[in-house]
Amino acid sequence: MRYWLFKSEPGEFGIDDLARRPDRSEHWDGVRNYQARNLMRDEMRVGDALFFYHSNCDEPGIVGIARVAREAYPDPTAFDPGNKHYDPRSRPEQPTWYMVDVEFVRKLRRTITLAELKTRPELDGLALVRRGNRLSVMPVSEAQWHFILGLE
């Protein structure tokens, strides 16, 4: 099993939205960064664990846990001219963008804030705390995963 962190804006789609889905799962579409796409397409596997991170909000931080429910497949929003994630270069026969399905596991007892994560020297190698990191999908080491869970 691998460990990941997914960023999402709670105003767009938050942990509560995922928890409310009838089967508690949803596709993770709209990723338009090649590095994040490659991680999803080439490395994520069913059962991998995900930290659900709320970004672009009053208190950014890790709010829950999910898991990969379906491995990467072409993101159909890239083919739809009416969708905000449309990419005219991506075609169904040769897709550029991929998505995975994620399944709700649980909310954390509290938000583990970005500010708190940045104060922990044990997390110096975590991509999330690096200056200028804008990736919406990033790997988390097993040691980092367990350390962060211990902060809960």
Rank of each mutant, 00 (worst) to 15 (best):
D58G: 15
D58V: 12
H146G: 00
R67S: 14
L117P: 03
V63G: 06
R24P: 03
R32L: 04
P88V: 08
D75V: 02
P74V: 02
L114M: 14
Q35R: 08
E43P: 01
F79T: 10
I112S: 09
E93P: 01
V129E: 08
A49I: 13
L126H: 03
D29H: 14
G14N: 09
G64F: 00
M1A: 15
W4A: 08
I15W: 05
W97M: 10
E152N: 06
F13W: 14
L5C: 09
E116F: 08
Y3P: 09
S8C: 10
F13A: 10
P121Q: 07
K118W: 06
M40F: 07
E116Q: 14
D16Q: 15
Y86I: 03
Y98R: 10
S136Y: 07
G47A: 07
F79I: 12
L151H: 00
M40Y: 04
F6N: 12
E152G: 02
Y3M: 11
G132C: 06
K107L: 07
N56Q: 12
R106F: 14
V100H: 08
L18F: 10
L108I: 04
D75S: 03
G14R: 04
V63P: 07
F13E: 11
I65M: 06
A143Q: 14
D101A: 12
N33V: 06
V46T: 15
L123D: 02
D87E: 03
Y53V: 01
R130Y: 03
